[in-house]
Simulated scan of single mutants.
Amino acid sequence: MNGPGERPRAVVLGCGKIGMDLAERIGYSGLLECALIVGRDRTSPGLGRAQELGLPTMAGGIAAFVDAAEHFDVVFDASNAAAHTAHWQALAATGTVLVDLTPSGTGTRVVPAVNGDAAVQSSRHFNMISCGVQSAIPVLHAIAVTCTPSYVEIVATGAFASTGRATRLNIDEYVATTQDAVRELAGVPEAPVKALVNLSPAQPEPPFRVLATVLADDARPEPVQAAVRAAAARVRAYAPGYTLTSCTVTDGRVDVALEITAHGSHIPPGRETSTSSTPPPCGSPSGPSLPSPGKERPRGAADRRPRNPARPDPSRRSPRGAPPARRRPAARLRQRRQRRGRARRRGRTR
């Protein structure tokens, strides 16, 4: 037991990008003490980085951690979905609280803005599902309260640089667990649900974005947008980087665009966004909006792709003022080389 004024002691299993980012957040939260970071390989970069930060570390994985027989109040599993079941079996008898940050699908599924209060009273094994679920389900649940969805789709796009090896190995589990959680927690058990994930290699790294689409014949703009704004405000109370960028309701289709900006040092933050001010109301003229279905968004100067410096600029002329020579299409050049080759083989010259 912790003494008066002592913070609960936390352990992070896994020293990849998510594990190290979590350890940093625990340190400055003031609510928990990051008492240990556990990895499998002593030479891993994550454990080395943790030692540089002055954090206690342990190699050998879950086996070494259990053998140490030291009491901790909460364990965060930031390893991978395949290993989590064994982690829970090893820790179940210890009485510690286990928070699963992998898409393993085991444990009590928790989305704080939807079922957080009820979940913490009934379990000590929690599953945070996936980043897409934590972003989308609060607004999907709010939409389902105001109408009857007949189809739900989530498209999550994140920076490739923010994903480690375990995250990329867990893509299948990510999709399956996300779809199951949407049916359970968003209140759409009968509606078809599709989840997609994209990893963008763009530079600079983009923020995490989620586009949620709901089809509902009885969706009405005013109640849907009011419910979505209220849900976004609840999430921002504990995740200040959560921003609602657009919410449109047109002909029974609801499109909600979300952007989540990280503030740790181990995951790329993406584009800087102001989290201290409230974003423009969704659907308002001053706020951004998604293009209507079937209409292409106009491309501005900021959207134009920069010219390839390896290719000549057609707007520049030669020193004599003459226009640059016209480039021959690749197909014509290929045909010309083929004709010359046939001529040489026949002993003729052109």
Score class of each variant (00 low, 15 high):
Glu6His: 12
Gly19Gln: 03
Glu24Phe: 02
Glu24Arg: 08
Arg25Phe: 02
Tyr28Arg: 04
Ser29Phe: 04
Leu32His: 03
Glu33Tyr: 04
Cys34Glu: 02
Cys34Asp: 04
Ile37Gly: 02
Ser44Pro: 04
Arg49Met: 14
Arg49Cys: 10
Arg49Lys: 13
Leu53Asn: 13
Gly54Pro: 12
Met58Thr: 11
Ala63Phe: 06
Ala69Ile: 08
His71Asn: 11
His71Trp: 11
Phe76Ile: 07
Phe76Asp: 03
His87Arg: 12
Ala93Arg: 09
Thr96His: 03
Leu98Tyr: 15
Pro103Met: 00
Pro103Gly: 00
Thr106Val: 13
Pro112Lys: 07
Asp117Met: 09
Arg124Glu: 07
Met128Asn: 03
Gln134Val: 05
Pro138His: 11
Ala144Gly: 12
Val145Gly: 11
Cys147Pro: 04
Ile154Ala: 00
Ile154Cys: 00
Ala156Met: 10
Arg165Val: 13
Ala166Leu: 05
Val175Asn: 03
Thr178Leu: 01
Asp180Ile: 10
Asp180Leu: 14
Glu184Cys: 01
Ala186His: 07
Ala186Gly: 07
Val188Asp: 09
Pro192Tyr: 05
Val193Trp: 01
Ser200Gly: 09
Pro201Glu: 08
Pro201Thr: 08
Gln203Glu: 13
Gln203Pro: 02
Ala212Arg: 01
Leu215Val: 15
Leu215Phe: 14
Ala216Gly: 09
Pro221Ile: 14
Pro221Thr: 14
Val228Leu: 09
Ala232Gln: 03
Arg234Glu: 15
Ala237His: 07
Leu244Ala: 05
Thr245Glu: 10
Leu258Gln: 00
Glu259Asn: 06
Ser276Gln: 15
Ser277Asp: 13
Pro279Glu: 02
Gly283Arg: 04
Gly287Cys: 01
Lys295Tyr: 12
Pro298Leu: 07
Gly300Ala: 09
Arg305Phe: 13
Pro306Asn: 11
Arg307Ser: 13
Pro312Arg: 04
Asp313Lys: 08
Ser318Gln: 14
Pro319Leu: 08
Pro319His: 06
Pro329Gln: 06
Arg334Thr: 14
Gln335Tyr: 08
Ala343Trp: 12
Arg346Glu: 01
